[in-house]
Write a protein that binds this DNA or RNA. Structure first.
Lengths: 333, 333
DNA sequence: TTGTTCCCTTGAAACTTTTTAAAAAAACTA
DNA sequence: TAGTTTTTTTAAAAAGTTTCAAGGGAACAA
């Protein structure tokens, strides 16, 4: 049997309430008493029971984190940002993989609420009505990280994906490219898919160019897709002279697909990625990419959540972090 | 205020005990009563409070996972294996980053025990006396994943790192190499450092060769170190004709370092990595590497932990999973 | 038909460990 | 010495689980 606050109280001949005060650093304790209690704690090797504390105080100092896939380099980096800030504010995190599966997501939200987490940090694809409904009823704050909650007025931290994609494509067009391959996964993912595609289209139309359907690949967000799609597009009648990929991993695929077919990057064809994961410098040529500050998004969203949890005043609920383009070897400029 | 089991009891005009039985699937409840209770639960939108349940039952269905760095591609993959199995057995995981810092590790163990986790899955570098002491006093089972607990008799799941490194080096020697660069981080890390270095030395001595000091780089486990160390070694009087790197990330560094200096891989120089992370196929040439089944190590170790937690019989406490070499483009054979 | 036994359900109450509000005691001040 | 203030204690509350006992029938024997 573990020693409880009650044992400590007896050992120090005080009441449990006093022990509780000492443990929680409440200043209304006479120094002599505090010392007595501290000694007893030491002697008995007392370790407070956070579950009982949670029940009594209705605070668990634990947050729930729902993430599509922790083994993805992108989300892993985000998670690290989250955890660092959580630790800083003395929270622990229960981490759950959802695979962006709606059933799982809803189920996880419920599990986390049962466990009485003090807040939820959600990463995912689409936020449906049902999601929004769950969040509304949640009784604890919810923050979205790298996830768009458009039209649902849910606190979130993102960059402007459309603008970011626009900037990248715009830059390529400015360099003289007219045929630019767009390599992406499903558009149902608003952040990785739709927004970037919109940015792509916007850049084209604002330059008076029209999008060629055969230069748009909407498959899966994988290296292999990047590789295959790029090769396929190079077979088309009017092959692209540059590529934009939704993720760095896809961009690596594109580069290798091109190299395998004998093209030189960036001399023959330029390639731009998205995210600036560690992969970007682990490829030859190194990858020019749109910088999405993953770690910061995680950190900022967690910080936002801590504010909600301690009922601090929050300025803007919808945070948009800055983005930029990091020029490396896969482009000429 | 949330609805409690008490509210449900009143609504269904039964006692809390009966509600508890229904919620927990206890069969000793008349179907009619069960239905009444289920209806009441539905009507009130009752959601059991896992904290109260944890206090009463002394089980939290939560495990603690201590990991050096979740943003590392290697550990992220392991974590995914852990979480999948945890989910399968209805556990959640509290994930904590330790940065392999001993103070942090000890502190995290204590925090997790305070939170009354049902078990701990530990990943780290060295297991010191103090670690072993903590684990012994822990009152809940502890399993090491991809972490050596030599001499401490702690359950663990690993591959035979020394043998694996031996196999790789042995193979290179068999192909005629006599000068083989060894690129590693600190040897304090038993698994990534020491064991592999021992395998390297063993392979050399068993072939009657002697290790050249200038062909051994012990720096940090990073891409940049791989890159720089490889380049440096190529300057040495008798440059290596092959490289073995402790991690895939370092191996990528090696390959790019060599390529940047104008060497061809594998024609001029062969390179072998370790781990078989997703990186291995995201480089040109693709990377020949020792396969360490990260996902499986995570999954198996979590499964082992579930057995301990439910007091099942466990056969072998120290599990050693098989390894093999995956031949790809960075070697000639 | 009545009495006894046994099983199935159910409820009452104890228990889990801590926080916290209210009350009491102690210490200090004027 | 009365009045404050500070410190400490008492006891309730948090939301469940679990043990034990008892009620209600059913089945069976007499």
């Amino acid at each position: 049997m573990n020693t409880t606050i009650y044992d400590v109280a007896r050992e120090a001949s005080v009441s449990m309430a006093t022990v509780s005060r000492v443990v929680n650093g409440n200043p209304n304790v006479k120094p002599a008493t505090r010392k007595k209690v501290l000694n007893a704690i030491e002697r008995l090797g007392y370790r407070p029971n956070a579950v009982a504390r949670g029940l009594a105080s209705k605070k668990t100092t634990t947050v729930g984190v729902i993430i599509p896939d922790i083994s993805s380099i992108f989300f892993a980096e985000l998670a690290r940002g989250i955890e660092d800030i959580a630790t800083m504010y003395k929270y622990n995190m229960i981490l759950c993989n959802s695979d962006q599966n709606k059933e799982k997501e809803i189920h996880l939200i419920n599990t986390l609420l049962e466990k009485q987490v003090d807040g939820i940090l959600f990463m995912g694809g689409e936020i449906t009505e049902e999601h929004a409904e769950q969040f509304k009823q949640a009784s604890v704050p919810v923050v979205l990280a790298a996830t768009l909650g458009e039209g649902h007025d849910i606190p979130s931290v993102n960059i402007d994906y459309q603008q970011a994609a626009f900037d990248a494509i715009h830059e390529l067009i400015k360099e003289g490219h007219q045929q630019i391959g767009f390599i992406s996964g499903p558009l149902e993912d608003p952040m990785s898919g739709l927004k970037k595609f919109n940015g792509y289209k916007e850049a084209f139309s604002s330059a008076g160019l029209s999008v060629r359907e055969e230069h748009v690949s909407i498959e899966t967000y994988t290296y292999d897709t990047g590789l295959e799609s790029a090769q396929q597009m190079m077979e088309s009648e009017q092959p692209p002279t540059a590529f934009f990929a939704s993720t760095d991993e896809m961009a690596l695929g594109v580069i290798h697909g091109l190299q395998d077919k004998g093209f030189n990057v960036p001399e023959d064809i330029e390639v731009v990625g998205f995210d600036n994961t560690r992969l970007a410098t682990m490829v030859r040529p190194t990858l020019t990419t749109v910088v999405q500050p993953m770690y910061d998004i995680g950190a900022v969203s967690m910080r936002l959540l801590t504010k909600y949890m301690s009922k601090e005043d929050v300025g803007e609920h919808i945070v948009e972090l800055p983005h930029r383009i990091e020029y490396r070897g896969s482009t000429r400029s």
